[in-house]
Structures are given as C-alpha cells and as structure tokens.
Amino acid sequence: MDWLQNINFIELIKCFITGGLICVIGQILIDKTKLTPARILVIFVTTGTILGGLGIYKYLVDFAGAGATVPLTGFGYNLAKGAIKGVQEYGLIGAFTGGVTASAGGISAAIFFGYIASLISKPKMKKE
C-alpha cells in the first residue's frame, strides 16, 4: 500500500471540485433545456474534442487530473489527443486511426461489459 503514503490531498480536492463543476454544467443543461441525455453526452464529447484540438483542455487536465479526464469531455480530449498524435506519427492515415486507438480501451470495455450484463441481467422496474 505505498500509494497511501503519497496521497496528494490537494490533487484530490482539485480533482473533486473540477469534476463536480463539469457535472454541474451538465445538470444546468438538463434542468434548463429540454435536451435528452444523448444530446447532452454529444455536446460534452464534442466540446471536449474541440477544446482538446485547440490545446486548451490540456491545461485543465494538468490542473485536475482525473477530474478533467473522467467526464465525457475528457473522452473527447483523449480522441483529439490521439488524432493529433496519429498525424504526428503516420501523417494523413493517423487522423483516422489515432482517435479511436487512444480511446479503444474505453469503447471496447463498454461494448464487452454491456454484452456481458445483457447475458446475465434483466431490466427491472423502478420501484419506489
């Protein structure tokens, strides 16, 4: 448990507050507009990709760590970062391979676990 000794509380608080605030922006969108969840996710991922491409989101990631990478804007940032890295390494073809390569883990995991969940579990009614 060596990681326990080098917990950086300032880092965790920065992460908590940044992540929380990004979610609050989403909550305001949910309550103040009639956007469906899918549209809100699209807005966040596209914003993240554009900010990532412009190099702005990187500062937020440096500041907040997982507080900026775990929200879907971070997923978008990752896509943009991957695409740029792909271009640097492979040129034109990298623009097409880079983004998905960088986020392959997340996408594959979601598909795989989604399929597993559907095998073993059934939806239930919300009972309150």
Partner: peptide
C-alpha cells in the same frame, strides 16, 4: 450512446486533418 461515438470520432478526425494541414505548413496549432 451511438451519437457520442459518431460525433466524438468525427470531430477527432477533423481535428487530426486540421492539425495535418497546419503542421505540413510548419505552423503549429498546439
């Protein structure tokens, strides 16, 4: 979630292409 991937990946390709254009002209974007 389909739209998330469609818009996310498409935007990332555009970002990559723009970067490619600026990069080949020796203007750095990032």
């Amino acid at each position: 979630a389909g739209p998330v991937l469609v818009f996310g990946i498409s935007t990332s390709i555009i970002v990559g292409l723009i970067y490619l254009i600026f990069n080949t002209q020796n203007i750095t974007l990032v």
